[in-house]
């Protein structure tokens, strides 16, 4: 469904220091620097896949999404989405995709969302019956009933985001580019949006490419992740493979039937959290089995669980102190 080969985007950026003298100098001299926002990125995504697109701020995620959706022309490389070259912006292509940007809205600000829905019905040439069915379905799934008639400006951020999502999906696109779709939403609303994206993907076999700073979004939705940093692809594969590679340690969570002293935990692993009747230890993959056996034999356990480190920690470690460069070499 999506093929990208050696995708590269270079921006020319005017640079000048602050101050009046620099402002005046810039009248006749405007030095530019080249910024390689995306640098030779290649990947392939199958139909109906849900893929997380991860990277720190400025890594090139949004630039990539904009090239895939035809908004930006690549400086070099090739990209094909749903059988089309995106930058040609053929109507047949645009009718198959949608790009939801958490920080930009297509809903008309002073009119109710239903007006933008009707506008999109005309633009996407959606037959009335199909439109009515889709609106009814989206209204039920996203609980929009009371929202569609209110002016957009009077909706809360979460309500607006739900309407944005519905509006972007009226034409039932086969490819969803979602750029921070849950930004600014509360936990409950994030869960609603995640559930909805998943059900849309399963129901319509739509391909989903998602960027998000909320790792819960990625963990809940994306079996596969593509990670880029400084414009380079540094990982493409299953999420758990990334976790294992970056943080091979496990978190051993223990709950006790009585108070346990620190000396009793010695030799099991590094203690990262401790309370009188519970503890969390970090244990390497190789030592895990032995640590579990010893804990079961020597401690008054009520509960024991083994977990991966939090995804936020994994990503922080991946991008910290040049680890990204190391990862390229692995």
């Amino acid at each position: 469904m999506i093929d990208a080969q050696q995708l590269t985007k270079i921006y020319k950026v005017h640079k000048r220091p602050p101050g009046l003298a620099a402002a005046l100098r810039s009248l006749w001299s405007r030095p530019t620097t080249e910024v390689r926002a995306v640098d030779g990125v290649s990947f392939h995504i199958e139909p109906a896949e849900r893929v997380g697109f991860l990277g720190p701020n400025g890594a090139g995620k949004t630039t990539s999404l904009k090239m895939l959706s035809g908004l930006l022309h690549p400086t070099s490389g090739k990209v094909v989405v749903a059988g089309h070259v995106p930058q040609k912006r053929a109507h047949a292509f645009l009718k198959q995709i949608t790009l939801v940007m958490g920080q930009k809205q297509q809903l008309m600000w002073d009119l109710p969302p239903s007006e933008t829905f009707l506008l999109n019905r005309s633009i996407y040439d959606i037959p009335k019956r199909a439109y009515d069915e889709t609106v009814a379905e989206l209204t039920a799934l996203l609980e929009l009933e009371d929202l569609l008639g209110k002016p957009t400006r009077q909706l809360s951020l979460g309500e607006r985001m739900k309407c944005e999502l519905a509006c972007a999906l009226l034409h039932r696109p086969k490819v969803l580019f979602l750029d921070e779709p849950t930004i600014g939403l509360d936990v409950q609303m994030q869960a609603t949006v995640r559930k909805f994206i998943r059900s849309y993907n399963e129901r319509f076999q739509a391909t989903v490419l998602l960027t998000s700073h909320y790792m819960d979004d990625v963990a809940a939705l994306c079996p596969r992740v593509i990670v880029i940093d400084h414009g380079h692809l540094i990982h493409d594969g299953p999420l758990d493979e990334l976790v294992k590679r970056t943080r091979p340690d496990k978190r051993l969570k223990l709950r006790f039937s009585r108070e346990v002293e620190e000396r009793e935990l010695q030799g099991l692993g590094s203690v990262v959290e401790r309370a009188p009747t519970s503890a969390v230890l970090v244990v390497t993959q190789a030592e895990l089995q032995g640590a579990v056996q010893r804990a079961m034999a020597t401690l008054p356990l009520v509960d024991l669980s083994v977990e991966d480190p939090p995804l936020e920690d994994v990503m922080r470690d991946l991008f910290a102190h040049g680890r990204a460069i190391q990862a390229v070499g692995t």
Binding site: G83, H84, A90, I226, V328
Partner: peptide, 29 residues
Amino acid sequence: MSAQAQSIAREPISSADDRETSWTESLRA
């Protein structure tokens, strides 16, 4: 880069429709 990503980079890109929307289509739309 993972092995999967490297292998994809070597594969030829699938053929694509690189036509733009024609004038008549634009006008009809």
